[in-house]
Design a protein around this nucleic acid. Sequence first.
DNA 1: CAGGAAAATATTAGATGTCAATTATTCACC
DNA 2: GGTGAATAATTGACATCTAATATTTTCCTG
Lengths: 173, 173
Amino acid sequence: MSKKALQVAQVSETESSESIEALPTGDHLALRLWLRLLACHNLMEGELRTRLRDDFETTLPRFDLMSQLYRYPEGLRMRAVSQLLMVTGGNVTGLTDNLVKEGLVERREDPTDRRAYFIALTPAGRAQFAKMAVAHEQWVMSLFSAMDETDQQQLCKLLGKLKSRLVEARAAA
Amino acid sequence: MSKKALQVAQVSETESSESIEALPTGDHLALRLWLRLLACHNLMEGELRTRLRDDFETTLPRFDLMSQLYRYPEGLRMRAVSQLLMVTGGNVTGLTDNLVKEGLVERREDPTDRRAYFIALTPAGRAQFAKMAVAHEQWVMSLFSAMDETDQQQLCKLLGKLKSRLVEARAAA
DNA sequence: CAGGAAAATATTAGATGTCAATTATTCACC
DNA sequence: GGTGAATAATTGACATCTAATATTTTCCTG
């Protein structure tokens, strides 16, 4: 979490008093929304991190990296991984180094491009991840269990809309 | 975003083939939902981090800490801050040390409890944060601009529901 | 084919974050 | 009053993450 405010002070509430009637609560709706998103993310992440550590002696970044490699058995470029995980390349290097040391991930040379290589799960890595993923999905489902399926679909749809806007915004910059 | 998978491999899709007809897409709804939440969080956070650095030469955790102190001019206990920010106490200690060095935050002794103290923004800290907060709110509003007010309210409501469930779940553990 | 732009990764320094253990103080209770 | 549990904050060890820079290799263009 880089990461993370639960409540952000709303200075403009006191400073732009001329619009009190015009936008009674709507004014800070976006901010409230962002703080809730942040809180939900942090709470979810904290739960998943704790359980991964207690049940599997691993961490969330490692799980995330392995999950990408699980989906691409042929292997992935470092750059592809860093984009998928939305982290910087230097980060992926360090994570990969550790997983390679433990025999869960291997680096495969690419004969056509000596700058790059692929990283992939070893058989041991695949086996370990498969076990974790089942538990992980159960955890996620149980954490969302307060919402019925309609709510979940609605939330999923709204987040999808937001996500495409954010991807656009980043591409524009 | 300790942080953060964009896509999590769905092992159970291939392993529990008996339920293909029963739950065609609903099966992994929760997982898709979580991944979208994660993606939105990461994209938002990345944008805000970049802009804070480019425009104000600061970082998100520092902004978050200052925002809490801005809301509580009388000061906050370290423990209170770490709960509000949802990070560990050791983390807050380090952040605070840096901000104190720069004269933006000060520690105030509590005569009634010599174990504890309060931290609060200095006048310089308040002034700096007030400027940042205005820009920050503008950024957040623009990042949510793809959604009309109805969508934002709906999303806010759904996240509120999720959040209370997550708080419960953590309390139960 | 030469020479420079672009790409893929590594490397580094520094900030952020967790967790476990430690210190100092207060509280509760006998 | 005095002892033990609980509380507030820090410290140290280590993992994670960003951002900036360096290195190597490939690609492109003339």
